[in-house]
Amino acid sequence: MTAGGSTSREAARLHAQARRGWWRQVLRWCGINTTDRRLEAAAVRQEQGSIGEQQTAILLARLPAGWTVFHDLAVPGRRFNLDHVLVPPSGLGVIVLDSKKWRRSYQGRPCLTALVGGRVHCGEQDRHEQIVKFAGYVSGAAAALGVPAGMLMPVIVVHGSPVAGDRLDVPVPAWERTVHILAADVLVATLAGMPGGRGPVKPAAVDLAARVRRTLPQCGSAA
């Protein structure tokens, strides 16, 4: 399974939409087509997202033996995808992992990912709604899998922007979730060091991985 595939396809679609049509080309030449600029900006964000997902996939390949890792999964009946889904060898639960590629700096100033007044910021930008939305995605994934919500752990890995203390634990009361935000540098060590992160593969892990494979098709597949 290829990480970032659906994000990359969405970026290509937005680029094509921004460039389609003779009149749009004229307006763009005149420098007054704001719709195209918004589409191109959205495409760039999607491209950055795809790069982040690919960087995460490289890191996840370093996990100890026994982990099952899925990339770019769809949730039937939902309009979102999951960047990465992981089952540890213990089978104690499922980690739903979202990749973010945020700016390291902006206009010469560093962009630290940190909690400001209880909300997640990257530099001066409030990114908290992205955290809340992701918690909702994880709840939707639990419902699709038919498992208790507590079996799924929401984790966000941030590339680019440093994370204060390498880790933030962010409560999302609306979803009864704590979203864990990790710096990319500590992702593998944190996952491998969690309870059940090392050791032989238990039958529960085999069953959970089979449930994920059966329930959540890869984006773009015919399943």
Rank of each mutant, 00 (worst) to 15 (best):
M1A: 13
A11K: 02
R13P: 02
L14C: 08
Q17E: 15
R19D: 13
W23D: 15
N33Y: 09
T34A: 14
T34V: 12
R37S: 11
R38V: 14
L39I: 01
L39D: 00
A41E: 15
A42Y: 03
S50R: 06
S50N: 11
Q55I: 07
A61T: 13
A61D: 13
A65D: 14
L73Q: 05
V75Q: 02
P76A: 10
H84F: 07
V87C: 03
S90E: 03
G91W: 01
G91K: 02
G91L: 01
L92F: 13
V96I: 13
D98I: 02
S99T: 06
R104N: 06
C111V: 06
T113Q: 01
V116I: 13
G117E: 09
V120M: 01
D126W: 06
E129F: 10
Q130T: 12
V132L: 11
G136V: 04
S139C: 14
A142D: 01
V155E: 01
V157K: 03
V158Y: 05
S161H: 03
S161T: 05
S161V: 02
R167D: 09
V170D: 00
V170T: 00
A174T: 13
A174P: 11
A174S: 14
E176G: 12
I181W: 00
A184W: 02
V186M: 07
L187Q: 03
T190P: 05
A192L: 07
P195R: 09
P195F: 09
A205P: 04
A205L: 02
D207W: 03
A209W: 04
A209V: 04
A210S: 12
R211I: 09
R211W: 10
L216T: 04
L216V: 03
